[in-house]
């Protein structure tokens, strides 16, 4: 049920984000999902682009940070927060077009009965800092362009290597992002890296569900989760430890299963982790009533139920 609603939502938003601009929809340039600005006629831009740009992002002179002009940087950020806060992680698995693209690939793999690649808890933990390194680069490179005279071809460093940039425009028939820009060594470097990464990620996504999400910078919006009414809680004392949640999680989050060692705490424990995409697969496969609950303030959006779980799998 929930899975179907989610798939429906993903498709609707895929169409809205990818083609909405053609029908006059424009949702701004601070979207917390991969609505790629390189898709012509898209309905809004991924905030990561704004973040790297001049005037509204970090490609800004140091003086501006201490002047009233800084409001131009703050404003898109505020908009980003306003958009992010109510939906939080739902932006990932319910709205993000690139997430749906990955799901399609996974669907093909599943149809072919090809096994998924395993990634151990240890590897996952080791990959976690990659996001922070990328974020640091995403901020430092534009700052260096604006202040230290780095060549402007270094601009939009994340977009230049983001695999969504060549892939998503394909759905509007645009293949132009698959090329090597021979202008200078910087452009060659960036475009070549982009092509390699696109290849790597396409293969990665095929063998590992939502492989891109492991590195997704937007997942760092998690840092503001405390401000959001969107919650994911676990009633630790209901959990039987069956591990279905970890098993069914597309990004193999172990913390829902093991609650980050908080298992001696009474009552409900927050288990919304950075990598969580809000897909609710875990809740759907949890066999204990109300052990896992997605909440919006105190309103239960979806909570686990033995009957739901049993029905779902016996009718498959």
């Amino acid at each position: 049920m929930v899975e179907r609603i989610r798939l429906f939502s993903q498709h609707v938003f895929f169409i809205v984000f990818m083609y909405g601009g053609r029908f006059g929809i424009h949702l701004g340039s601070a979207l917390p999902c991969f609505s790629c600005p390189f898709v012509q006629g898209c309905a809004g831009h991924c905030y990561l682009m704004a973040l790297q740009r001049t005037h509204v992002g970090f490609q800004t002179a140091f003086e501006v940070f201490f002047s009233s002009a800084f409001v131009h940087v703050l404003w898109p950020f505020a908009l980003f927060l306003i958009l992010f806060l109510p939906l939080s992680k739902l932006w990932c698995a319910w709205l993000c077009p690139f997430c749906l693209f990955q799901d399609w690939i996974t669907l093909i793999r599943k149809r072919l009965h090809i096994r998924e690649f395993s990634m151990s808890r240890q590897v996952r933990n080791r990959l976690k800092p990659v996001k922070y390194i990328l974020l640091a680069l995403l901020i430092l490179i534009p700052l260096a362009i604006a202040n230290l005279g780095l060549h402007p071809d270094w601009g939009l460093p994340f977009c230049q290597i983001c695999p969504a940039r060549p892939i998503l425009p394909l759905f509007t028939g645009n293949v132009s992002n698959f090329h090597i820009d021979m202008t200078n060594s910087v452009t060659i470097g960036f475009t070549a890296t982009a092509m390699i990464l696109t290849g790597v990620f396409l293969a990665g996504i095929f063998f590992k569900e939502r492989f891109f999400c492991v590195f997704c910078l937007l997942a760092l919006m998690h840092l503001f989760k405390k401000l959001s009414p969107f919650r994911f809680e676990k009633n630790v004392h209901a959990c039987t430890g069956c591990g279905n949640c970890e098993q069914m999680c597309p990004v193999d989050i172990a913390d829902v299963h093991l609650e980050k060692g908080k298992n001696h705490m009474p009552g409900a424990v927050d288990v919304l982790t950075q990598d969580c995409l809000g897909c609710m697969n875990c809740v759907e496969s949890c066999p204990v009533d109300n052990a896992l609950v997605f909440k919006w303030f105190d309103f239960k959006i979806f909570s686990s139920s033995r009957q739901y779980m049993t029905r779902k799998w016996s009718s498959k």
């Binding site: 793999r109 998924e116 496969s285």
Partner: peptide, 11 residues
């Protein structure tokens, strides 16, 4: 409990 599987591959 019901067996919840990710896909229908043998693995």
């Amino acid at each position: 409990g019901t067996v919840a599987y990710e896909d229908a591959s043998e693995f």
